[in-house]
C-alpha cells in the first residue's frame, strides 16, 4: 500500500499540490481524475521520486520514504514502473530493443531469456509483428503499447500510467485497458491511472480521486462519483455519465 500524507508541491511561487492525502490499496487500480493542469502528472512524478514534495510524507511498504536513505528509496522505487504520457521511448532503438532495454541494462539477463521475455510481452500488447519497427514508424497507440510492454518488463509491483489512452482511437484504447486489467488480474499489480478520460477510468478502475487546482475534491467509488453533488465534479463527469450508465447496464 502507498500512503500520501499532506503532500505540497510548488513550481517557483505557484502551488501545484495542496495538502494531498490519500492511500493507494495494494492490488487495485486507483484512478486520479482531473482537468489538465490540476496536478495529476506532478503527483505521479512525486510518487516515482522524479520530483521532491515541498512538504508531507509518502509511505511505501510501511516505511516513510523521507526517513530512508537514497539507496533504500531506490530499492523500493525499483519495484515501481511508470508509463509516461508521451511514452518516453528511446527513439534510436527499435520496438524490440525498447522492451528489451530494462531486461538487459537493469537485470543483465542472458540474451536467450531476454528474447523469450520480449516476445511474450510484445505478444501481450499485440505488437509481435512490429518488433523491428523504429519508434518513429509506430503510431501513437503502438508507441503507448510499447511503453506499457517496457514497463511490464521491469516486473513491477506498482505501475503508474500517465494518460495512457489520450488521443487514441477506441480500439487502441480498448487494447490498453485490456493490458492494464490483465496486469491487475494476473499479477496482482497495484496500478495508479492518471487520466481525464472517464470511459477509460470506468472501464479499469473502481476507486476514483478527483483533483482540481491541486486539491482533492473527491475520493470514492464510481457510484459515489456519479452521485457527487460537488459542482466541479459534476461539470467534469457530466459528459461521461452516459458512458458509465451504458457500461453499468451492459455489465448487469
Amino acid at each position: 500500500m502507498i500512503i500520501l500524507k499532506n503532500i505540497d508541491f510548488f513550481y517557483g511561487d505557484t502551488q501545484i499540490l495542496k495538502n494531498i492525502t490519500f492511500d493507494i490499496p495494494a492490488g487495485e487500480v486507483t484512478t486520479i481524475l482531473g482537468p489538465s493542469g490540476s496536478g495529476k502528472t506532478t503527483l505521479l512524478r512525486i510518487l516515482t521520486g522524479l520530483l521532491e514534495p515541498a512538504g508531507g510524507e509518502i509511505w511505501m511498504r510501511e516505511k516513510s520514504m523521507m526517513t530512508l536513505s537514497k539507496t533504500e528509496q531506490e530499492h523500493i522505487r525499483n519495484k515501481m514502473a511508470i508509463v509516461f504520457q508521451n511514452g518516453a521511448l528511446f527513439d534510436s532503438l527499435t520496438v524490440w530493443e525498447n522492451v528489451a532495454f530494462p531486461l538487459h541494462e537493469r537485470f543483465s539477463m542472458p540474451l536467450a531469456i531476454i528474447r523469450q521475455e520480449v516476445d511474450k510481452l510484445l505478444d501481450l500488447v499485440g505488437l509481435q509483428n512490429a518488433a523491428d519497427l523504429t519508434i518513429n514508424q509506430c503510431s501513437g497507440g503502438m508507441q503507448m503499447r510499447v511503453a506499457i510492454a517496457r514497463a511490464f518488463a521491469c516486473h513491477p509491483e506498482i505501475i503508474l500510467y500517465d494518460e495512457p489512452t489520450s488521443g487514441l482511437d477506441p480500439i487502441a484504447r480498448d487494447r490498453i485497458c485490456d493490458c492494464i486489467q490483465n496486469q491487475q488480474f494476473q499479477h496482482n499489480v497495484t496500478s495508479v491511472l492518471v487520466t481525464h478520460q472517464l470511459a477509460t477510468a470506468f472501464r479499469v478502475s473502481k476507486r476514483f480521486i478527483c483533483l482540481y487546482a491541486g486539491e482533492i475534491l473527491f475520493d470514492g467509488t464510481a457510484d459515489e462519483l456519479t452521485a457527487s453533488k460537488n459542482p466541479y465534479v459534476q461539470r467534469f463527469i457530466q459528459p461521461s455519465k452516459r458512458v458509465y450508465r451504458a457500461l453499468d447496464s451492459s455489465l448487469t
Binding site: 516515482t48 514502473a81 511508470i82 508521451n86 518516453a88 521511448l89 521491469c154
Partner: peptide, 13 residues
C-alpha cells in the same frame, strides 16, 4: 525534453 532521461531514472538506471 522527451523524458527519456526520466524513463532511465524510473528504470533504476
Amino acid at each position: 525534453v522527451s523524458q527519456q532521461i526520466d524513463a532511465l531514472v524510473t528504470m533504476g538506471i
